[in-house]
């Protein structure tokens, strides 16, 4: 019985691969964009004026304090009411990028604040501009604090991407829902879906662990 169901599921591997591909694609694009945006927001929040810092802080709190499902519904169903037409993929990318950026912003801010004040004073005293201080002195040292939680956050965000199945994107989770309609064994189907996510996330978990071990050996800057 289970064997037959498994064979049936294996035959539908093109669909499963499509779902896995969608999950990987969504995660990859939104993590890259979210990381860039998150670093930008983090630097602004840590160094910008009080108004900018407070505005970013409020947005980050708002996004961190509401369920991602609600955010994705708002983007997908409310924005078109305001005249912004979005396909499900774009809505998913926007939602995930925003979510990633907000969490990464907080990680980056914590990293920047962990750099000793004397470092910034030394850079200031030698006439480095704000951007040069960030790029040459602060961020390389902040990365020490930032990298392990950053990679950990990637894992959480990849798993959060399953929520986009709710707006009809055929990601790994949605493939699971589709398969269950044909093969009525939810346990088996979602065990396989779980394995799919695990295969994507596990290398990142290993990377995070490796980075954490490297911290103590580094001279303040961490190279991958």
């Amino acid at each position: 019985m289970i064997w037959e169901q498994l064979q049936d599921l294996i035959r539908s591997y093109p669909l499963a691969l499509r779902g896995l591909g969608m999950t990987v694609m969504l995660s990859l694009i939104s993590l890259v964009l979210g990381t860039l945006l998150g670093f930008g927001l983090g630097v602004l929040r840590a160094t910008g004026n009080r108004f900018i810092s407070a505005a970013i802080g409020t947005w980050v709190d708002l996004i961190r304090g509401t369920p991602f499902l609600v955010q994705i519904f708002l983007i997908f169903f409310i924005l078109p009411e305001l005249g912004v037409e979005l396909d499900a993929f774009t809505a998913g990318i926007i939602g995930l990028t925003n979510l990633a950026a907000c969490f990464i912003c907080e990680i980056v801010v914590a990293g920047i604040r962990a750099v000793p004040k004397g470092q910034i004073e030394a850079a200031l005293a030698s006439g480095l501009s704000l951007w040069q201080r960030m790029r040459q002195v602060v961020l390389p040292q902040a990365m020490r604090v930032v990298l392990p939680p950053l990679v950990g956050q990637y894992v959480l965000l990849i798993k959060d991407s399953s929520v986009v199945s709710a707006i009809g994107l055929t990601d790994l989770t949605r493939v699971g829902w589709l398969a269950v309609q044909r093969v009525p064994n939810g346990l088996l189907v979602f065990a396989i879906v779980g394995v799919g996510y695990f295969l994507v996330c596990y290398p990142l978990i290993l990377l995070a662990r490796r980075l954490e071990r490297r911290m103590s050996a580094a001279h303040g800057e961490v190279k991958l």
Binding site: P116, G118, Q119, E121, A122, A123, L124, A125, S126, G127, L128, S129, Q136, V137, P140, Q141, A218, H219, G220, E221
Partner: peptide, 19 residues
């Protein structure tokens, strides 16, 4: 920023860039 390039400052705690 320009004025600071003309002024060297040596700190009690050195503040070398560790990386």
């Amino acid at each position: 920023t320009l004025l600071r390039t003309e002024i060297g400052f040596v700190f009690q705690q050195f503040n070398l860039y560790p990386h």
